[in-house]
Write a protein that binds this DNA or RNA. Structure first.
Length: 774
RNA sequence: GGACGGUUGGCUCAGAGGUAGAGCGUCUCGUUGACAUCGAGAAGGUCGCAGGUCCGAUUCCUGCACCGUCCACCA
């Protein structure tokens, strides 16, 4: 007999264990018969293996719904879990811990630091796995992968080599985004723009060989001392006569030339721009176009370069103040606009202002790869849902893509697989900790006089190789000089370089010989659906498309489904600092996993925001209990009573014998058949919000409120119709349990377990692998 | 500067070319065979503004306003 109320905490763990023990999450492939039956595959967007679960992860409920639905259709269904080492994210969390102990990453050589982070991660790497189990996610845990597994890393590095061979990876000295606080460069995607109000200085430049000044507006006067050129727009009638003329650098007195380029906006400021190629993206491009010198003014420490005269070594802000003071003293500042608002790039993590620097980094040529990714969506090989909104975003980004900087100056991640011979590259700069625990740096040729190669390598922190340094992609002795003193690049790879290959590396693609890829790969690739939130459409989805198409000529997934974002009940993004975070595990413990799952899905439009409140979760908990009591009611009325299933007798009952009750029974069967079709259609079209809302309406307000009340009346007087009424109620219950199962797997499985023997053709299987109604 | 999304009852949100829906909240009534995590009933919306298409629009189109988001080298 069912209890009076549904108690999720008493059954969820038991049920999940039953599913796991039954190995239902592992796709059933008949031996030697991989093809034939079309599989359904989803790769879980790999969470940071180190992070506890948050509501964003709980949204993977949408994937569980799809997976459970397809499993019930009888398809071999794989939902593949994984965990990401999350390079920068993890290293920073770790560094915070170090900081609490008064230490920093510079106190350790890179190998020691790496090992420390590894151990740190090991402590809670199972945390979010256990949490996802709490929510009932039917992930195939037997295939779990961690992004730093040797096999995964090996595949990823092979891709690096292949890209390099194809000329799609290169080492370049280009302008990149550098965060002085994080001490590493970032890709363009990791830079956020914030509106700021900064002073706009109008600086006077004295003309050479003529009287008077020209004026240039700038927010960044501090690197003026390395400037060599100004620019105006050739179409600018007011200023274009200046092209070719010369002015005096207001800080150094050196001569500067004015060039013409149409990137200059005549309407901005005075229509004249100072060029600082090493520290401004636009200026860098112009400088390359016109072959202008690119001179550094700022170092990786966020300070003025040693050659900066009186400003050398000053921090940027201090240098700016000093420069302004000096210019003012010489009456070279015409005016200052203190209300100038502009967008500044900041680090997406720490919000420090990004310093564009021109340094040596590893890049991927993205244009050719992006072309594949664009074509695949244009031709419909991969569909993005919802299409209208996100395909446009996708194209816009890929069409304007710049080369991808994949170098990171951190230790937590696989190192770039390139090795420099120190004999051939004596000018290579090295930073290391010597035997006496002192930090030492300098060019190798100097260091090698005082320290052995072994000592340097043992204490190595980072290297910085000149742009013309020679390197090889094997760790073998130098092919040119035979030298054994080699050093591997200390830059590590952008995390997304790894996760961008996730479908390939986890499923067993063989890049040496694609024909020899695993049977697994051949069967499950391309995957069916990739479901994620829009925030990583570029970071991850677009990159997977590029890598997948480049390596296999096949898309990695047929559908990209964008799910909704969870916000609080006032529409605010959940964040710790706002204190509006609802923890998925806490509410699961309180109201049950099914209640949370439903709260994240019911009535939610695709890719919208979900205003999640505890009230909604309570409402959904109430629904689960309602469903439970529907079953309980039917059980009470049918136990030890004769039961007849009208469906089985339908052909043999003639219309003459239709009583009002029997007609009612027929109508109920027809009604639920229509419901199946409707729900199936909604699920197939990714309208999970509508599917669950419709089911909710039917279950509560049609079945419970109307039909059960009718039946209750009739069943007061036992007669020849009564067995049919009971049978019909059992039939409907059986059907709606199936329809509900993908959404609320625990409560449906538990009711199923307690009730299934009363159904027509009593099933023996658990609900999770029962057949979806046709 | 481009592009996109939103604007529907007190709150949070669904929805569709043809009498407006849900959850929560509010009000009234109701517990002797499921459920008070409940039932019966009620109040409450000129579906942002202005035009246009149509027999008919809140739903399609155009413009505007406000809110939000993404992209972008205006120094």
């Amino acid at each position: 007999m069912l209890d009076k109320a549904y108690k999720p905490n008493e059954v969820e763990e038991k049920i999940y264990k039953m599913w796991e023990d039954g190995r239902y999450f592992t796709p059933r492939l008949r031996s030697g018969q991989a093809p034939g039956r079309k599989p359904f595959t989803i790769l879980l967007p790999l969470p940071n293996a180190n992070d506890p679960m948050h509501m964003g992860h709980a949204m993977f409920t949408v994937e569980d719904i799809m997976v459970r639905y397809h499993r019930m259709l009888g398809e071999p269904t794989l939902w593949l879990p994984g965990g990401d080492h999350a390079g920068i994210e993890t290293q920073f969390v770790f560094e915070k811990h170090l900081a609490k102990k008064g230490q920093s990453r510079f106190d350790f050589d890179r190998n020691t630091l790496y090992q420390m982070i590894w151990d740190f991660c090991d402590q809670n790497k199972n945390l979010n796995r256990d949490q996802m189990k709490r929510l009932g996610f039917s992930l195939d845990w037997s295939r779990y992968h961690y992004s730093l597994e040797p096999e995964i890393v090996e595949k990823v590095l092979k891709t690096f080599k292949k890209l390099h061979e194809d000329g799609l990876i290169y080492r370049g000295k280009k302008i990149v985004n550098f965060c002085p606080h994080c001490g590493t460069t970032f890709s363009d995607l990791e830079v956020d723009k914030v509106e700021r109000i900064d002073p706009l200085y109008f600086v006077r430049y004295k003309k050479t060989g003529a009287a008077g000044y020209i004026t240039v507006a700038t927010t960044r006067p501090e690197p003026i001392f390395i400037d060599t050129h100004l620019a105006v727009n050739p179409k600018d009638k007011k200023n274009n006569k200046l092209i070719g003329s010369r002015v005096v650098n207001p800080l150094t007195g050196r001569e500067m030339e004015i060039i013409g380029d149409d990137f200059v906006d005549p309407k901005f400021g005075t229509g004249i721009v100072k060029l600082t190629p090493a520290h401004d993206f636009a200026d860098f491009e112009v400088a390359q176009k016109h072959h202008l010198p690119i001179i550094d003014a700022i170092t990786k420490d966020g300070r003025i370069v040693p050659s900066g005269g009186k400003y050398a070594g000053m921090k940027i802000k201090a240098a700016r103040e000093q420069v302004v003071q000096d210019l003012t003293a010489n009456n070279l500042i015409e005016k200052v606009d203190h209300n100038y608002q502009h967008a500044v790039g900041v680090c997406y993590r720490c919000k420090t202002i990004i310093e564009p620097l021109t340094i040596e980094q590893w890049f991927i040529k993205t244009k050719p790869l992006a072309a594949y990714a664009i074509k695949a969506v244009k031709t419909g090989k991969t569909k993005i849902v919802p299409k209208k909104r996100f395909e446009k975003m996708y194209f816009q980004w890929l069409e304007n893509i710049r080369d991808w900087n994949i170098s990171r100056q951190i230790v937590w991640g696989p190192r770039v697989p390139a090795w420099y011979c120190l004999t051939c590259n004596p000018h290579l700069e090295m930073f290391f900790i010597n035997k006496n625990k002192e930090r030492v740096n300098g060019p190798y040729k100097d260091l090698s006089r005082k320290f052995s190669y072994e000592e340097i390598i043992a204490g190595l922190q980072t290297i910085s190789a000149p742009i013309d340094a020679t390197y090889s992609l094997t760790g073998n002795p130098c092919q040119k000089c035979g030298g054994h003193h080699i050093v591997q690049e200390t830059d590590t790879l952008d995390t997304w370089f790894l996760s961008g290959q996730w479908p390939l590396s986890t499923l067993g693609f063989n890049s040496d010989n694609p024909q020899k890829s695993s049977a697994n790969f051949k069967y499950f690739y391309p995957t069916s659906v990739l479901d994620t939130m829009w925030d990583i459409l570029f970071f991850w989805v677009a990159r997977m498309m590029m890598f997948g198409l480049y390596l296999t000529s096949e898309v990695p997934f047929k559908v990209v489904h964008i799910h909704a974002r969870v916000v609080d009940k006032f529409g605010q993004k959940m964040s710790k600092s706002k204190g509006n975070v609802i923890d998925p595990i806490t509410v699961t413990e309180k109201y049950g996993a099914d209640a949370l799952r439903m709260a994240l899905v019911l009535g939610v439009a695709p890719a919208s925001d979900i205003a999640l409140s505890e009230e909604k979760i309570v409402g959904m908990r109430n629904f689960c209990n309602k469903l439970w009591n529907i079953a309980r009611f039917i059980e009470m009325f049918s136990v030890n009573k004769p039961i007849k299933f009208i469906g089985a007798e339908m052909p043999s009952i003639s219309t003459k014998d239709y009583t009002q009750e029997k007609a009612w029974c027929f109508e109920r069967i027809t009604e639920t058949t229509a419901l199946f079709k409707e729900i199936t259609k909604l699920i197939e079209s990714f309208n999970f919000g509508q599917a669950s809302e419709r089911l909710y309406q039917y279950t509560w307000h049609t079945f419970a409120d109307m039909h059960l009340e009718t039946a209750k009346n009739w069943l007061k007087n036992e007669n020849e119709n009564s067995p049919y009424i009971r049978g019909t109620l059992l039939d409907i219950l059986e059907r709606i349990l199936k329809l509900w199962h993908p959404f609320i797997p625990f409560v449906t499985e538990e009711i199923w377990d307690q009730m299934k023997l009363r159904f027509a053709n009593p099933p023996k299987k658990p609900l999770i692998i029962e057949q979806w109604p046709k």
